[in-house]
């Protein structure tokens, strides 16, 4: 277990697994910040370990002492009111925050035994293993086929044309889009509907065969039916990939996530098994948010 964690941040309360379903309203102050590891049938191998992560936009501190473990081949949902830092946190995991000039990051984000923020770490290599799907579908202004084949070809994952065709088909099948687009692979990606575009972006991400896929509110721009399709897809994809998704929709978190983390004002308030979190949150703030008292 990961209990070498000693420096517990002020005001930070990380849920400690209690094993029973007693409601705990009081913040668990003073408890060692040991992330949850529920007994579940799924596998619990560690994928990304985050310790004492702080992030500033200029003078403004957007993340405060985040400690969290993300497990392989599970769906982890990050919830919280807007501006709480959940997207910012997500973007720390593949260093997309590097693109913003004024950002300063402190703390450990560890993957595969390496600190992703260390200077020796090539952020391109990191992003190769940690893919991302964005809030708004952003297919490239290329054909559907090229949208998917582009990255694997650059990564030398495919050689011959036949291999490439096969990979495109597999990615589209995995993303559940194949049947809809197999006859129009060479039409522009932007000609698809919003939900299809988002699945195209997911197909694009999995074609690179990453370990982790980050999803930043992937369904917020979509209609309910497309949303349901994508949720089913996430459920299927977690067989192969670790998925971390940000959502402002608590029902969605309840439906798709194995673990849920609740962020508020840059702090991680509670992190727990989704079922526990929604049936029996340990912290008052979480409960207030989940029951819709604010947010």
């Amino acid at each position: 277990m990961l209990n070498e964690q000693t420096t517990q941040a002020k005001g930070q309360a990380i849920d400690v697994p209690t094993g029973d379903s007693t409601r705990t309203h009081a913040p668990q102050a003073g408890q060692p910040g040991e992330p949850v590891n529920r007994n579940k049938e799924a596998n619990h191998e560690l994928s990304i370990r985050v310790r004492d992560l702080n992030l500033w936009y200029g003078e403004h501190q957007a993340l405060k002492n985040i400690n969290i473990d993300i497990y392989q081949k599970n769906v982890t949902a990050l919830i919280g009111p807007s501006g709480c830092g959940k997207s910012t946190f997500l973007r720390c995991l593949n260093r997309m925050n590097d693109l913003i000039k004024s950002v300063r990051i402190q703390g450990l984000v560890e993957m595969d035994g390496r600190d992703v923020n260390e200077t020796k770490m090539d952020e391109v290599a990191l992003r190769r293993r940690v893919g991302m799907v964005f809030q708004k579908p952003n297919p490239f202004p290329k054909s559907i086929y090229e949208n998917i084949a582009y990255a694997p070809r650059m990564h030398d994952l495919v050689g011959r044309k036949a291999e490439q065709d096969e990979l495109v088909e597999r990615a589209l099948r995995d993303a559940g889009l194949w049947n809809e687009v197999k006859d129009k692979l060479h039409q522009p990606g932007t000609s698809l509907s919003g939900g299809q575009q988002q699945r195209l972006c997911i197909a694009r991400a999995i074609a690179v065969q990453p370990d982790v896929i980050l999803m930043d509110e992937p369904t917020s721009a979509l209609d309910p039916i497309s949303t349901a399709t994508i949720e089913d897809l996430m459920d299927k994809l977690k067989q192969q990939f670790t998925i971390v998704t940000v959502t402002h929709n608590m029902q969605q978190a309840a439906r798709v996530a194995d673990y849920t983390a609740f962020f508020h004002l840059g702090e991680l308030i509670e992190y727990n098994d989704t079922r526990v979190m929604f049936s029996n949150p340990h912290i008052r703030k979480t409960e207030d948010y989940i029951t819709g008292r604010y947010g």
Binding site: N94, M96, L99, V124, A125, R127, R128, R129, G131, M132, F134, K136, N138, P139, F140, P141, K142, Y150, A151, M154, H155, C201, R204, A205, V208, P210, L214
Partner: peptide, 24 residues
């Protein structure tokens, strides 16, 4: 979002410019 989409696939900045930004 175009640039981010490409960078998130593990493309370098120049590859992003050449394959995504310039065609766009």
């Amino acid at each position: 979002s175009m640039r981010e989409g490409s960078l998130a696939l593990g493309m370098t900045k120049s590859e992003t410019i050449k394959s995504v930004v310039l065609p766009a």
